[in-house]
Amino acid sequence: MLKKLFPMPLHSVLLLIVWLLLNDLSVGHLVLGLILAISIPWVAAPLSDPHARVKKPLHALRYILMVLGDIVVSNFEVAGRILRSNKHLKPGLIALPLDLTGHFPLAVLASTISLTPGTVSVDFSEDMKWLYIHALHVDDEHSLIERIKTRYEAPLREIFAC
């Protein structure tokens, strides 16, 4: 019964909080926010498919902070490459073998790669075992693959426990 009324309880709470933050805190907005927070999950619940859940929230927080730090560093790197002459640029495609499974963890990995050091994820292979990456500058293919695997993939496997 309760499950039917609130199919996505966490999302409902989040929706209400975001609604109140975007508008001012008043009774009117509280009522409107509550109505929206309860009714939107009714529509959205059938659309969501089960995916891997975050098993270790603390590790996830550490991962987010690490990625934010990497984003800043990678930006200086990319800015430097942009300002230097094009002649020194050696772009390339790389195939990254994946140990991670599940759609949601893979999406997180692909997004992280796109946001960090000179790499953009292009596509997955059909069997989801390879991720193709375009790198702005390839010095050593293997060390780049190794770096991504240890720095991003390993913690993600731990977080999602898969």
Binding site: N75, V78, I82, S114, L115, V120
Partner: peptide, 8 residues
């Protein structure tokens, strides 16, 4: 060029 907007 894809790298410019996604990062900088």
């Amino acid at each position: 060029r894809l790298h410019a907007p996604t990062k900088a």
